[in-house]
């Protein structure tokens, strides 16, 4: 535990210090929230839930987006540690690779949840009604799971990458598809028929629906189903991440 805490502490310290990174990675979610939210709010009617406007529908999706991006990036950050040599320092210490990997994951997830919380707070100012405490906790539970799941994915990817050259590839073929096919922007039922299965195999979908249930009280997928699927995926992702990180060479 103390080793995981040590690595967590480092991630959080670095995060708190890098103001530009905090602001930078909030930029895109905020842009999506404002542009899509206000732009489409008057035009789009969410089918089946007359009381709900599009902006409210969108907020959980954008929170999930902020968590997703930050967590995957934080996982991929170990490539920098590799390139700048810091990874060696941890690898020659008498600690297991599993501990290092878990520490990185938890650290990345923490920063990701903080980023998501920023969006949540921001959305309170633009007209989201305040949910119950229980709702908040449910939302944070799902944000945490998304954070851990995708930080582990980031580490898995980074373990197989030599340097940052493949980053654009990851961005275009991993992160954006996960986000786009998650029901974050549009209700799952209103998607074209052939897209729906893709959405349902995407773990982020269950995260978005879980947060949506917490904040709005309604979701397209039952929250316990979301919890089970996302929880299981997170566990699998940690195993894959840990396995690949164990094999990674410096």
């Amino acid at each position: 535990m103390d080793i995981i805490y040590t690595l967590w502490l480092r991630s959080v310290k670095r995060y708190v210090r890098s103001k530009s990174r905090i602001v930078g990675s909030l930029g895109m979610p905020v842009f999506f929230l404002l542009a899509l939210g206000f732009g489409l709010n008057e035009v789009v009617q969410i089918p089946g839930s007359p009381g709900e406007n599009y902006l409210q529908f969108l907020v959980p999706g954008i929170i999930a987006m902020a968590v997703l991006f930050t967590s995957i990036f934080s996982g991929i950050m170990i490539i920098w540690d590799k390139q700048f040599g810091f990874l060696k320092e941890t690898l020659v210490a008498p600690v297991s690779r599993l501990e290092i990997m878990l520490g990185q994951t938890v650290g990345g997830a923490t920063t990701a949840v903080i980023q998501g919380a920023f969006i949540l707070v921001l959305s309170l100012f633009i007209g989201i009604r305040i949910p119950s405490l229980a709702g908040f906790l449910i939302a944070f539970l799902f944000m945490t799971l998304i954070g851990i799941c995708f930080a582990a994915l980031g580490i898995a990817i980074a373990s197989r990458m030599e340097d940052m050259h493949g980053f654009q590839l990851i961005m275009n073929f991993v992160i954006f598809p996960i986000f786009g096919l998650s029901g974050a922007l549009f209700p799952i039922e209103s998607l074209p028929g052939w897209v729906i299965p893709l959405t349902l195999v995407n773990p982020l979908t269950y995260g978005v629906e879980g947060i949506r249930y917490g904040l709005l009280g309604t979701s397209a997928i039952h929250p316990l189903v979301s919890l089970a699927v996302l929880g299981l995926t997170t566990a699998v992702m940690i195993v894959i991440g840990a396995f690949l990180f164990r094999k990674a060479s410096v």
Binding site: R10, F84, G85, K88, E89, V92
Partner: peptide, 14 residues
């Protein structure tokens, strides 16, 4: 053992 690597292995942000 203690190791001082040829390439730097410090965290510059700390």
């Amino acid at each position: 053992i203690g190791v001082v690597f040829q390439d730097q292995s410090l965290d510059e942000e700390l």
